[in-house]
């Protein structure tokens, strides 16, 4: 009986100690679990277009030909693609933006996102930064960003001077499914998989509780660079904040409505450059050729000694290939 009392007193002391030795933090408080967005912090560089606020930056002379970098995800951000800004030293006006609901851009409700809206945002960004009607516009898309770039070109083939696609994860629903199944294999007995699943008992967030849900996605994103990953990703690369709701919203739409960004690509006669990382086992030359076949004219370039995150881990090899392509069309 005495030992029971002692145990109770010790337990209570610990619990009370925990309560009074630290202050409680609301996980929904902006900036507590994840960085604030441009809507929450006026110091973050941003533009207001198409009914949203997008975190955005530019490098180089605004009168030069424009190069817009489109990050992956959906929901990721442009931080690990920032090496592309070197193109400003090569005579280009380089534009970065975090897509709607992604990175440090404004968050919206899950059910508000549509693929068309993401395409329209890109159009609005081009118009926002364009300094003359004849200014050339190039797109460099990475992963989902390459899919989005293609979707834009499919609708607006005459607006884009050149297109560089780095491992688009499928330009229609079937290819998207194929790539997803190949690149995201789950092993229920692995540390990696259980780290993705186990966090659900620590934090739960209702739909549109962006701080909590984005935090969980940030934590889970370690899955992508786990040892032995199929995409040949060498390790972690910097990011600001993932957007869980835009990812969930667009994934639902893709599942429900399917999509096909290739229906009008026959109208885009400009040569397209497709890049793939040597170490990405899910992509490779065969998937690059499959995607290249949707375009009338294309070149495929292998980036050696890297995988899916080639812009961060092997920019030195990407840079000359991208620059040569841009200079040919500039």
């Amino acid at each position: 009986m005495k030992s029971k009392k002692k145990l109770l007193i010790v337990t209570l002391s610990i619990l009370v100690g925990i309560q009074f030795s630290c202050s409680d933090i609301d996980p929904n408080e902006p900036g507590a679990l994840v960085p604030k967005t441009a809507e929450q912090d006026a110091n973050i560089p941003a533009i207001d277009v198409n009914g949203t606020r997008l975190h955005a930056e530019t490098f180089g002379d605004p009168n030069n030909s424009m190069v817009i970098f489109l990050h992956g995800g959906p929901g990721a951000d442009y931080r690990n693609g920032i090496n592309v800004k070197e193109l400003a030293n090569d005579g280009y006006y380089v534009v970065f933006y975090d897509q709607r609901g992604s990175g440090l851009s404004k968050r919206h409700d899950k059910n508000s996102y549509t693929i068309q809206m993401m395409i329209d945002d890109l159009g609005a960004v081009i118009e926002y930064y364009k300094t003359s009607p004849t200014q050339k516009v190039f797109l460099i898309g990475h992963s989902w960003g390459a899919m989005l770039s293609t979707a834009y070109v499919n609708q607006n083939p005459s607006n884009i001077t050149g297109l560089i696609l780095a491992e688009a994860g499928g330009l229609n629903y079937d290819d998207f499914t194929t790539y997803g199944e190949s690149s995201k294999k789950l092993n229920l007995f692995s540390e990696t998989t259980n780290n993705v699943l186990y966090i659900d008992q620590f934090f739960t967030g209702k739909e549109n509780q962006h701080e909590i849900l984005d935090y969980k996605l940030n934590i889970r994103s370690a899955f992508s660079f786990a040892p032995g990953n199929e995409e040949g990703i060498e390790g972690p690369s910097p990011f600001w904040r993932n957007g869980a709701m835009v990812l969930a919203g667009l994934a639902d739409i893709a599942e429900k409505d399917k999509f096909d960004f290739t229906t009008n690509l026959g109208q885009y006669s400009t040569k397209v450059l497709l890049l793939y990382g040597e170490n990405n086992k899910s992509y490779g030359l065969s998937f690059a050729q499959k995607e290249a076949n949707y375009f009338p004219s294309s070149d495929i370039a292998k980036i050696e000694n890297t995988g899916h995150e080639m812009f961060y881990f092997n920019w030195n090899s990407v840079h000359p290939k991208v620059l040569a392509y841009l200079n040919t069309l500039n």
Binding site: D24, I25, P27, T204, I212
Partner: peptide, 9 residues
């Protein structure tokens, strides 16, 4: 730090 509330299932 300590975050409250955290969640539940």
């Amino acid at each position: 730090g300590w975050f409250i509330p955290s969640g539940g299932n």
